[in-house]
Amino acid sequence: MSIFVDENTRVVYQGLTGSAGRYYGLLNRDYGTQVVAGTHPRKAGSDVDGIPIFATVGEATEATGADTSCIFVPAPGVPGAVLEAAEGGVRFIVVITEGVPMHDEARTFAHLQRHHPEVRLLGPNCPGVISPGHCNIGITAGHIAKPGGPVGIVSRSGTLTYQALHELKEKGIGCTTCVGIGGDPVPGTNFIDCLAAFEEDPDTEAVMLIGEIGGSAEEEAAEFIAEHLSKPVVAYIAGMTAPPGKKMGHAGAIVSGGRGTAAAKVEALGAAGVRVGSNPTQAGELMAEVVAGL
């Protein structure tokens, strides 16, 4: 089992005809993902390596039964693409594109909540989601993940997600689902959404949470863990030594006015019973101990 996606997930790629969309779309198909369609307003009727292109997501879902969309279009087109996907009938939308303005993210998220509450958005600016062995949507290198379980991963950082998958695989530990929620200001899916889903998933027996400085998402996750999670959680927080006022790479990662520090996040998680590694390797070791004790 897994969360959000499985081997039956049928995916339409918005932006499949572009260079990144094509590259990752085909890699995802090679991994075993059911890549059933692509869209482009003026290239309907053509195909990308045998994958049919439709004018709109609505036409694609109708013809192929796609239930999920993966978006690779350039940032200015993302709000329109998300609305098209929601109106086109998919239940899950993964936005890989980075550089989407904050106000576009806020408006799009609010619009979905109001008009399409049944649709889940993941991203923007995220690596996607992988259920190892079943389905890989996005830009994660599938082979670094070991299929199976019992660990579910949720992460705000791209490369640290890969690092976590790798650390676990090295130790012979499998992963049910790995969700990269991205580090943008308005993530469509947040830590709590993933923690709740992992709690419900019978095959996930422990959760690895990877956070970073900025905002208070980790503190809120800690509160949720303390109240609602019966499964053990191991965490790592990047940015212990980040100086205040300096943005470390992307929009979310900044310590400002004494808020958003790694120390505060580590403390909150620790108080919620989460074991926190001081570096990614140590977090992997802690998870190995947890798994051994399951």
């Binding site: 992460s155 705000r156 950082s157 791209g158 490369t159 640290l160 997600t161 690092q163 580090g183 990877i210 970073e212 400085i213 790592y236 990047a238 940015g239 212990m240 030594t241 980040a242 300096k246 470390m248 790479g249 992307h250 990662a253 790694a262 001081s278 570096n279 990614p280």
Partner: peptide
């Protein structure tokens, strides 16, 4: 990657050194 770069800065500090940059 931003996350890995932050983790690298942290781990230099943890090893008793001082990072010069991110």
């Amino acid at each position: 990657g931003a996350g890995l770069a932050m983790a690298t800065v942290d781990i230099v500090d943890e090893a008793g050194g001082t990072p010069a940059n991110f």
